[in-house]
Simulated assay, not measured.
Amino acid sequence: MKRGFRELLIENSDSIVENWLEEISSLKTGNYTATISDELYESTNREFVNVIFTSIRNQGSSNEVEDFSEKIINLGWPLSYLTDGLQIFRRVSTEYLLSQSEQIDSNQFSMILSNVDEWVEPLIRQLVNEYSGSWENILSLQRVALQELSAPLIPVMEGITVMPLIGTIDTERAKLIMENLLEGTIKHNSEVVLIDITGVPVVDTMVAHHIIQAAEAVRLIGSTCILVGIRPEIAQTIVNLGIDLSNFPTQSSLKKGFTKALELTGREVIDLKTREADVEGIINSLKGE
């Protein structure tokens, strides 16, 4: 943008900002921002227009653009908010510059449009690129977090770990389950691993196949895998599908599975009250002798 036009915009920023705020506020009713509070919408709009004028003054990119794009993503607002706002600013700025020109001819009109575009177009590209980059980065971080939470292996006692599974199991997640299961079993030196499928809504042939593969892999590294959380409808499905689960133990609940795991590791659950009563009985018997 030529210096004269830029200085004119900056010197009259109050009028341009007022017109811009009025037009962008008119978009709120009935569009993607309809549910946003008026206070948040107004404060964000003012921050947006400040970012625009900061870019004009700096004649290029600024950190404010990156920060504002990230803020819009965190608010959950779409990219169209940014592009709509810049298109409105393009129109408002052009109209203002035209209103300040004493003589309007085709050359003057073309010059104003060209100079406004020299600034607006780069800013649109920068905002879109920053928005897209921040969005991809956030998605990547979320994907990693979800993967870490989708197949956790939890050590509950020396030699015993639990892997609770929740939600649908697809091929990609099954691969992750296998990797976490084997790495965790070795890391925690697990003798018994409980795979809890209480939260798995459907167990079909593919899901059962993946679970059997995981259990077999655990067996090959010297540990025992117990499948727990088998509800009646899941048991019926497994039988109807003809799936063979006879090679590794199964239990209907995590409690029963944990009791079995204690048994396999040479331990048992003891009722302390009962044990105390038995000890007291032995002591009383010895006193009687």
Rank of each mutant, 00 (worst) to 15 (best):
L149Y: 04
T83W: 02
V218W: 03
L286T: 12
Y41S: 06
T54K: 14
G281V: 07
E289Q: 14
I186F: 10
L97M: 07
I166G: 01
R231F: 05
E179P: 00
G288V: 15
I195T: 01
G266I: 06
T198P: 00
E179M: 08
E179A: 11
I197F: 04
L123Y: 00
T171G: 09
V116A: 03
V51Y: 02
T198Y: 10
I195V: 13
E268F: 14
D117N: 04
E289V: 13
C225L: 06
D67L: 14
S43W: 06
S55R: 05
L127I: 12
L272N: 07
I238D: 04
T250G: 06
E118A: 15
P155K: 01
K260V: 12
R173P: 01
R3K: 14
N180V: 01
L139A: 11
M163Q: 03
E121F: 14
P78L: 10
Y96R: 03
L97K: 01
L194Y: 04
D84E: 10
L146F: 12
L113V: 09
I154T: 06
I160G: 03
D105L: 01
R3D: 14
T54L: 11
E70G: 14
A261G: 03
T185Y: 04
L272V: 10
T205G: 08
G76C: 09
W77T: 06
K71A: 06
L21A: 11
P232D: 10
E191Y: 10
Q147T: 08
S285M: 14
D38I: 08
L127W: 02
H210S: 06
